[in-house]
């Protein structure tokens, strides 16, 4: 429908937009176009960000970021990450119970903080009985970031780091190159703190951003980084490959972190709308004047 295609002026008067409309009409139409465009964009804007992005909030000081209920977290945007069974080859691998995890990420110049929170009514903190398994959560990162590793624990040629926290209170850093290969690595800067309140676990992992050690993820403040998550519900006998996992997401550490990418998109859209409206208005006026 050429008539609606106002941005391509046609020299045939009958078919041009402006020729049949008064100046008022043009202004009204421009307004409608802007409003419709904004309305169409609104839901995306409310949902905030591109798929698979987890925003990273920069903070001057670490304050109480290492505390699961630290106030410094109040200003950090949250992402909700859906989880599903990892489909590993262990018995009952599909019987997992946690469906999503809330993720908030902050960083200072020195450290990266991840706050993970998920619903689990039972606190399974002991592995002292033969059928006792502990709740757990893990963060998976590429060991080096040249290429995205396979989601299931990486591969021999493209390994992953895993930060693992267990309800028993222990946490550890692991290196893996495929399912069943996790091996503990020495990572003295990794910390984890957890609370269980109102039927939810909240666990904060933190680690030094930089690493110059082989096979230990170096977190660059200037570059997005892949991340995947896993949660285990101990009382459902979840352990190893029987776990609820996410797809690969990424931490938005890259150049846009000063203002999240969706703001940039919003401004581009708004800018285009303004240019469009102006062009339509000018053309309308020109035509109305019979130029």
């Amino acid at each position: 429908m050429r008539e609606d295609d106002g941005s391509v002026p046609d020299r045939t008067p009958e078919s041009t937009l402006g020729s049949k409309l008064s100046r008022e009409h043009v202004a009204a139409l421009a307004l409608v176009v802007t409003v419709v465009a904004s309305a169409a964009l609104l839901p995306t804007l409310a949902d905030a960000r591109p798929a698979y992005e987890i925003p990273v909030d920069y903070q001057q000081s670490s304050a109480d970021l290492s505390e699961p209920s630290g106030e410094a977290w109040d200003s950090v945007p949250a992402a909700s990450v859906p989880l599903s069974s990892a489909g590993a080859s262990v018995p009952a691998a599909d019987e997992t119970s946690v469906e999503s995890v809330r993720v908030e990420v902050a960083r200072t110049n020195e450290r990266l903080y991840l706050r993970l929170s998920w619903a689990d009514a039972t606190t399974d903190t002991s592995t002292d009985e033969i059928s006792g398994f502990a709740d757990a959560v893990a963060v998976q990162l590429p060991a080096n970031q040249s290429e995205r590793p396979p989601i299931a624990m990486g591969s021999t040629s493209n390994r992953v780091n895993v930060w693992y926290w267990s309800g028993t209170g222990e946490h550890e850093a692991l290196l893996a190159g495929g399912p069943g290969t996790t091996t503990e690595i020495d990572e003295p800067t990794l910390r984890a703190n957890a609370t269980h309140e109102d039927g939810r676990w909240t666990v904060v992992f933190s680690r030094s951003m930089a690493s110059d050690r082989a096979n230990v993820t170096d977190v660059s403040p200037n570059r997005d980084m892949d991340v995947a998550l896993a949660v285990w519900n101990g009382s459902n006998m979840e352990r190893s490959g029987r776990k609820a996992t996410s797809e690969w997401y990424y931490l938005a550490l890259g150049p846009d972190t000063g203002g999240p990418p969706y703001e940039a998109i919003l401004w581009s859209v708004a800018g285009l709308a303004i240019v469009f409206t102006t062009l339509v208005t000018i053309e309308g006026i020109r035509r109305t004047r019979g130029e």
């Binding site: 262990v90 018995p91 002292d128 009985e129 033969i130 059928s131 996790t182 352990r239 190893s240």
Partner: peptide, 23 residues
């Protein structure tokens, strides 16, 4: 061994045992 106990489940003679101290 990371104490997953799949072997304990998997042995029909129940001849693998979980050590809760060493995990």
């Amino acid at each position: 061994c990371r104490g997953y106990r799949y072997c304990v489940e998997g042995c029909p003679y129940k001849k693998v045992f979980y050590n809760a101290e060493t995990k």
